[in-house]
Design a protein around this nucleic acid. Sequence first.
RNA 1: GGCCCCGUGGUGUAGCGGCCUAACAUGCCACCCUGUCAAGGUGGAGAUCGGCGGUUCGAAUCCGCUCGGGGUCGCCA
Length: 586
Amino acid sequence: MLKDTYCGDLRAADAGRTVRLAGWVHRRRDHGGLIFIDLRDSHGIVQIVLSPDQAEAHEAAHRARTEWVLAVEGEVRPRSAATINPNIPTGEVEVVPARVEVLSEAQTPPFYINEPVEVDEQLRLRYRYLDLRRPEAGNIIRLRHEVVRYIRDFLSDRGFIEVETPTLIKSTPEGARDFLVPSRMRPGQFFALPQSPQILKELLMVAGVEKYFQLARCYRDEDFRANRVAEHTQLDLEMSFVDEADVMGLVEELYTGIAQRFGGGRPIASTPFPKLDYFDCMDRYGIDRPDLRYGLEVVNIADTVRRSEFKVFQDALANGGEIKAIRIPGQAGMTRREIDHLTETARSGGARGLAYIGFTGDELRSPIARFLSESEVNAIRTVTGANDGDMVVIVADQADVVAKSLYEVRDALGTSLGLKNQDQLSFAWVTGFPLLEWRPDEERWDATHNPFSGFREEDRHLLDTDPGKVIARQYDLTLNGSEVGGGSIRISNRADQERILAMMRHSPEQQRERFGVLLDALEFGAPPMGGVGMGIDRLMMSLVGTENIRDVIAFPKASSGTDPLMSAPSPVDDAQLRELGLRLIG
RNA sequence: GGCCCCGUGGUGUAGCGGCCUAACAUGCCACCCUGUCAAGGUGGAGAUCGGCGGUUCGAAUCCGCUCGGGGUCGCCA
């Protein structure tokens, strides 16, 4: 090794040691006589001091520029009291080199590495290897390693084995669009990249593995978002002979440990994690992954205004809809502009408008008050618990529109009122999901999560009479309002699996073609089984407090779906295409 | 695919019809400088304003198209 010590590791106790350091010039302060160089490596930064006495070293330091790579050999010296820098961990010492060697020179970087300035993301991605030198960026990748290592240790200690599954698998036209890989040896045929190792992990259970996990790369060929990329990493895990409580308990212990160790001291809002029912969630938050860091719960006020004159309310109820409200404490005086903005937000959720009542002492601030009797207003006030100074906003429409609109309103308020406390990790389980939902356009049932989720035995009879009422043995984990993972106890017998697939309008031929392997395997002694897929990227986003999923990935694709670093995708030679039996059209 | 926002020296921004021969900060280069840590001082180089076309006496500034980027809806678990 050219070095025996990391720059960032030096402390007062190292004073007097002779060390060999190597790293990058973070910053240089050349006083003509004295030269200070902040030398940076993967552990941090330490100050190097060069006086003109050591002519050769001084000369090298004088030539050196930002991001040059230097090897330094010298003595660690305590700094005098007046020159201690309390802002950096190594600030009590500095290194006085006898020798400075330039290992590599460097062009001026295209953006600042030594200052946290917001730079165009494409430029950063194109030079990601420089971007990652920025401690703020690189430390996320290092933290990710620690988290992943913790996961591996945790599960290994509990008898899990990590098994790799293939990256080239069979395409199933279910769910998201597959990435396809043409087969050279079978021209005209294609592999798909896995959207998750779902079937394979169930086969591992049939294989008697009992406890499996994998940090699996999952691929979906869909458009990107701030928190969505084409390839993401999931902690994929499956266990035999378990029920919901076993899997949820294990995941909860794991995630509590991760949050405590890597959450930067941020408290977990509640342990054990709250368990919410899906229908309850939809009722109170309008969404199945509520952000529990703040209140602003949705209240049903249909009963209080059932006999109201107000046509909007009448129509909604006459058409089988709902009327719900959110009480916003202390916001009766919000500006016209803010109200308009909230109304716009509600409209984006499908609502035609947003009614409001501001309780400002004796007066009511409300365009709809004249359609309501005094007792109705009082009833609304009682049901919502509104005090003087509170604002109540109301949406009346079909249930799904009310839910979506008020979810959007609540979410917007959470942001604008500063209620999304970044210093809190608020986990919650959501269970009790419907197994199936009706697709009117396709006239078939579809799985709400995945077609292998089991269902409550007591709901079995409903499969014939009212399939939409069947509750799945599904559980999702949410963190600060985003879904960080989910799983289920699986169907583990062929008859049930075939029955569900049939309800989803898979013909027996399609079932054999697409899921034959699994169906067969379920006939050879399949154990009861269940597991989860946990999104590692989103977990890391929460741990480091970023909105951008690309921050937690070493070499991410840009939002456009391209790779500015490698310039991918790119055209290929005709010869390559020919070999694959492909020809480009258009 | 729809909608919204952005595109000015290396980087981050200002300028939004003529005062722009494009400003500021930082970075870069040179010189001065022995205790700085965003070192300081002096001087200097560096962008025709994403591209194309149009309106106008005159366009970084207005209009159209286009390319690139970001966000969002659709899509996606």
